[in-house]
Write a protein that binds this DNA or RNA. Structure first.
Lengths: 172, 172
DNA sequence: AGAATTTAGTTTAGGCTTCAAAGATTGGGC
DNA sequence: GCCCAATCTTTGAAGCCTAAACTAAATTCT
């Protein structure tokens, strides 16, 4: 191991912070956003696997269903989770196989199906989400309440900016 | 291991029992962070595919290599990208096949290999990163400079909080 | 030196994800 | 009633990703 190249483990965002000045504010902001999210997300995934032998997408799907006792269609899940519908098909299949979710016909439209938590699914999600909530609180524990609320607000503005850039442009 | 510090290292069930109210704030912050990142990331992926027929992981690997002309080892790439080493193996194989990256022996350590951009890889990454930078600026365009810099700073604090929670406890 | 440990990288199995194409159903217009 | 376009879902191919087991090489210990 060459001592001159002795590099501490640095992520992409940290690396860039040292190199170019000036112009690239937005880029640095984006990389930090990405790093921060990835760091938390990866820890959440690890703990979901370790403590519940499950995955983040499965947890997210349960969470989506938990909010609507009557159940929602696959398409609706797809929109809420911001993933493709083909993705939801496979995810649902696995969760049905595990007995956490059930598929039901949607009365009046034979194309669509409702997904709904089973009793077991509700119990399981209750356990998981309680732990999940604690993990998030733990990870963000060093952030003061005021920092938290400012961050929340600014992320709202960032989100709005992105949505504005993505929305169909104003027809003249 | 210090057992008296166990209060912070909550396991699933205790977390449930002890969770005081107020954790919902952190949860909402986390969900917004996740949504915001996912929204941008998904757009970036779409554009990378549309305009350059490539993917975000490929782009990220090129970016990591572009910063270090001499090349870096697979393991170093893995650390910087915060992904598993097995992942880097496959990614590198594909990029080598496309002629954008080359593998070289690391003098003095026959276990390790250096990854380095080829001339073609450098050209290609220059094109991609210019576009990429423009996209980010476009998406975050509605954010004022002061909002941007505050957001950047707060994300830094969030990141520090997460790292603190994850770092090996008590250096007694 | 020789054994034990650590480190670099690959492989494998399984799951996640997207896109594009196809199957099924609905609803509107003729 | 019939066709057509839109909607809901599935399928298949390709790539991304991790954990865990494994090989090979370097380092450390004795």
């Amino acid at each position: 191991m060459p001592d001159d190249q002795r590099a501490l483990a640095i992520d992409a965002e940290t690396a860039l912070a040292h190199a170019p000045p000036g112009h690239k504010d937005e880029l640095r902001l984006w990389l930090r956003l990405l790093t921060c999210t990835a760091l938390m997300e990866s820890e959440i995934r690890t703990r979901l696997r370790r403590d519940f032998d499950t995955t983040l997408p499965r947890f997210d799907l349960l969470a989506a269903l938990d909010r609507v006792p009557g159940g929602i269609t696959l398409g609706e899940v797809s929109r809420r989770m911001m993933v493709s519908n083909g993705n939801v098909t496979g995810l649902a299949t696995r969760l049905v196989a595990e007995g956490l979710v059930e598929r039901r016909a949607l009365p009046g439209d034979r194309r669509a199906q409702l997904l709904r938590l089973t009793a077991k699914g509700r119990r399981e999600f209750a356990r998981q989400s309680a732990a999940h909530e604690g993990w998030i609180a733990e990870l963000l524990d060093d952030l003061s309440p005021s920092a938290r609320s400012t961050l929340f607000a600014l992320l709202g503005r960032a989100k709005a900016s992105v949505r504005a850039a993505l929305s169909p442009e104003d027809p003249a």
